[in-house]
């Protein structure tokens, strides 16, 4: 039985602590290529989330059946099945997204995030935990891509989610070089904020444990 604390830990890991894009720098290829628009970022993120959830669930369910020697080919087979299924679903029901994602959709098969979570989490944990891990890691990837997509779309095209804001645009942000530039800035910004917040909580936790109440309040105020 899964405890709420487990869900919270998995959620924090996927969304922030081990965010695949900004902390682990995984799935860089679609991150750089598809964040020219925020909607592309959301589309790619949700596509990866779909594959992550289902592949994690199946891999976790079969973790005692799949021999260690052939685990990687087995994982790739399972992931490829869900990516193919996703392609069929998108082509049928959301053809515009299917076309905009182009070659990056089948490339989800070799996305490091999915294979990484299969190898490091799903193959060692129960089904429900793995499903939550897939969900939160996918959502972490989605928000990161959307965040980058918003920055690049606003600066590079003067739009946000397809709606024009102004005529001003800096084409550089829509280019490949702009993608690297924005990605680098986002990683730096995220890690700066994350480190500050983490050290704050660490200090507060330490203060509450070892200091008197007034000293702890004073430390927290810092």
């Amino acid at each position: 039985m899964m405890k709420p604390a487990d869900i919270k830990k998995i959620g924090m890991d996927g969304l922030l602590r081990n965010n695949p894009t900004f902390r682990l720098v995984l799935g860089t290829c679609p991150t750089l290529a598809l964040t020219t628009a925020a909607m592309n970022g959301i589309g790619m993120g949700l596509a990866v989330t779909f594959v992550l959830i289902f592949s994690n669930v199946i891999i976790s369910a079969l973790r005692k059946v799949i021999p260690n020697e052939v685990r990687i080919p087995a994982f790739v087979l399972i992931i490829a099945t869900f990516v193919t299924l996703l392609r069929m679903l998108l082509d049928k029901f959301i053809p515009s997204l299917y076309e905009s994602m182009g070659v990056y959709l089948p490339l989800i098969v070799v996305n490091c995030i999915i294979l990484g979570r299969a190898e490091s989490f799903a193959s060692k944990n129960p089904v429900l935990n793995s499903a939550f891990d897939g969900l939160f890691t996918g959502l972490g990837f989605t928000w990161a891509l959307t965040f980058m997509g918003v920055i690049r779309e606003v600066l590079g095209a003067g739009q946000i989610f397809g709606y024009t804001l102004w005529d001003f645009r800096i084409e550089f942000f829509s280019s490949s070089a702009g993608a690297f530039f924005v990605y680098g800035l986002c990683v730096a910004l995220f890690n700066l904020i994350y480190t500050k917040v983490e050290s704050h909580f660490h200090r507060v936790g330490f203060a509450k444990k070892y200091m008197t109440a007034p000293e702890a309040a004073q430390e927290e105020a810092k």
């Binding site: 799949i66 087995a74 087979l77 099945t81």
Partner: peptide
């Protein structure tokens, strides 16, 4: 190992065949 991989491939193939027909 061979049996496990074959079973996964067969089930995946069957699932995709059915879904291809539907979609």
């Amino acid at each position: 190992c061979i049996v496990v991989l074959l079973c996964i491939a067969l089930v995946a193939g069957a699932l995709l065949s059915i879904m291809n027909d539907l979609l």
